[in-house]
Design a protein around this nucleic acid. Structure first.
Lengths: 231, 231
DNA sequence: CCCGCGATAGGACATATGTCCTATCGCAAG
DNA sequence: CTTGCGATAGGACATATGTCCTATCGCGGG
């Protein structure tokens, strides 16, 4: 179990933020299914995600949950609302055991003029997320489910063939904005064509190459946010 | 025709950015249909939109244009790519005669530590835009065209009943991600029901109240960006 | 082993939607 | 006034999609 200081050094936070902000960093752990951020709570902190995978989502007026994004380390959470809202707009829930380092916004405001580099980093990360959102939306609004699924799969595969996001059909349908039924039809076809493996349940990619012609304007994973302290 | 200095004072730019950055501001005018930013060009400047209305769009691999947003003063353009990309990702085109004040990114980087307030403002604006995007997408992905149209109309109406975005059916279909044909069906119905006026061509809202029950989780206009210099 | 129950998939049907084509409108030029 | 042409709308048809229900699977407990 890594200590706070080691995490700070590993992710270069000591080079990204001024010393007083480093002092203000506080760890927060959550288990799978537990909330890190609850939509509606007052905006108090910025979260640096240093361990685990999490998902961000909102809830619509009809109670339906709307998955916005999946994140893994190193990334920032709660930065959307940091200087633009009084309450968090999205909830963030741990998928796997998660560890964050929390930075109080009051401290950020006070030390703004000593943290130009950090604020530029935040702007950059927000810009990347906005660009990703634009890109994903342009696909999801214009292409049928098979293309959306193919794009999502290609964008989400890590080196080991695991999916960064979700491999659960229900969640995936929610994420790409389709019904479970329609997604199931496409998945069935992909399985029959040897693109996905198995016959039932969670998704696993079998033949990545067959996805390429189906994917349109690939989702860009703007890479992991990288080691912010090492520009 | 307002002078540069008057515009700077009017929008409080002198209170938002340090004096050296104020000195670096350069005006840029464009007529309707002319590009302010071309996707693919190197990221050189941040644009403050102080006059006119503009639209931002990308082009997909199939050549189709994808409208991302409409903007009016006071707002910033090109901030998405500012610290996250080398080339502009979206083109920005004037809808009406437009005037911007340009701020070179090199100057911003150099003066970052004297401009904490400005960088926080940028983060805030990016956060608002990202939140808007999330919101709009959650609707457009889950509701049929009639709800999308109603939401768009409500979010885009200004005090005088004009639409901030577009009143052109073709552009609107593109923006909400539907075919012209399907949009035309819905528009025809809205006209028959007295929600929209006229029988043909550009859209004009007749009965705002009838739109309310059709709109779902209204698009949030995060307000105009406001007068950044006056916090 | 058997049973029950939740998770998952597939059937049946209706409708929203897009493609492609034809019809109509409105404006400008002769 | 008439004609031509681009802009706009509507018809016909196919299909992608969602809703709702039934069937099947797999796991855990008795």
């Amino acid at each position: 179990m890594e200590r706070r200081e080691e995490l700070i050094r590993r992710f270069g936070l000591d080079e990204l933020i001024s010393g007083d902000l480093v002092e203000a960093l506080a760890p927060l752990r959550r288990g799978p299914g537990e909330l890190l951020i609850r939509a509606g709570d007052p905006v108090r902190s910025l979260y640096f995600l240093v361990e685990g995978r999490v998902k961000a989502y909102s809830t619509m007026e009809n109670g339906q949950s709307v998955l916005a994004s999946f994140f893994e380390p190193f990334d920032v959470l709660g930065e959307v609302e940091l200087f633009s809202a009084e309450r968090y707009l999205l909830s963030v829930e741990a998928i796997t055991p998660a560890l964050c380092l929390l930075l109080p916004i009051a401290a950020v405001r006070k030390a703004a003029d000593r943290n130009g580099r950090f604020l530029m980093y935040l702007c950059g990360r927000l810009g990347e997320k906005l660009a990703d959102r634009n890109q994903a939306e342009s696909i999801n609004l214009r292409y049928p489910v098979e293309n959306r699924l193919a794009s999502y799969l290609l964008a989400s595969l890590d080196g080991a063939g695991e999916l960064l996001g979700t491999d659960d059909l229900g969640e995936l349908a929610d994420f790409i904005g389709a019904s479970y039924r329609q997604l199931a039809r496409v998945v069935r076809r992909f399985r029959a064509e040897g693109i996905l493996e198995g016959t039932r349940g969670r998704i696993r990619v079998l033949d990545r190459a067959k996805l390429l012609p189906l994917a349109r304007d690939l989702y860009h994973r703007s890479g992991r946010a990288g080691r912010p302290g090492r520009a």
